[in-house]
Amino acid sequence: MDQPVLKVNNLQTYFTSDAGVVKAVDGVSFEVSKGETLGIVGESGSGKSVTSLSIMRLLKDTPGRIADGEILYEGRDLVKISENDMRKIRGNDIAMIFQEPMTSLNPVFKIGRQLEEAIILHLKFSKKEARERSIEMLTSVGISRPEKIVHEFPHQLSGGMRQRVMIAMAMACNPKVLIADEPTTALDVTIQAQILDLMRNLTKTTDTAILLITHDLGVVAEMCDRVVVMYGGRAVEESDVLSIFANPKHPYTQGLLASIPKIGERLDRLQSIPGNVPIPSRMPEGCKFAPRCPHAMDICWEKEPEYKEVITNHSVRCWLHEEVPQDESELVGSTQH
């Protein structure tokens, strides 16, 4: 792989609330290279969306702040640069697609104007050129009558169309990194298939690096090259997509994979992870997964394990893989079906 375009090092994002400091993201590291799709998987409250907002520096109007860590984009640390410099990067070099296209498009402006805004600002195009570029972008995302659509308002479009517009907007300035935060969660499956197909084709031609944030392991399996699994604000496992699915090392990843119902596979009972997703303000001491973990040992309750590369390109945050590596094969074997 080439040099990573985006590299996140030990990111920590904290929120200050009445209940004290909430560590929404606490030690997340990963990198993504040109043309690569990196999946960030996790359940609600795992900190995956806060990670993406931190990268875009969109936490200014929230009680959140980046407490520590680096976000290196082409060697520059985005945590340290000025708001002015960040504005040049945001939407231009790094673009983002959000989950709910209706709330991320401005309801009072026509589609064309919203698309052109970024193009005029970043690419310094004239109005006319910007309109041409918007129409070209809309065509590339498979919208059939782009000349008409630019004159319409977001509410006149269907959910799938809106998400296409969002993608067109994000891709308009040829970003090097595209952050897609649950891009298809609000869509129906047949529309989801269209949008995923579109994202795959677009990035193949432009070589954009994608950070795909999702809770859907099916989407991960189809789209991603590598996967980071998050739990309780931490990265708990990272590897290439094949190893994550074939040979998950963290008990949480194993549980997550076992608990999804799969088409064509009929079990009387689904496997499930007991207990509930932890609330960020009431995080357990030690390993955050210990209260739900079938393999929890004494040390798990006391001390948080480090995030370590246990085999080449496969990192995991778990005591099982630090102290007693010989247990590993047995553990993996027992949870695969």
């Binding site: 499956v189 047949t190 529309i191 399996a221 094949l242 999804i260």
Partner: peptide, 25 residues
């Protein structure tokens, strides 16, 4: 058929011929 084939499969080794429906509901 299209609905069944549109469901993403949580297995990266499976490559399928997907029926992608045109247009919206």
């Amino acid at each position: 058929k299209a609905l069944l084939s549109a469901v993403p499969v949580p297995d990266p080794t499976v490559k399928r011929n997907r029926i992608i429906l045109k247009g919206d509901i």
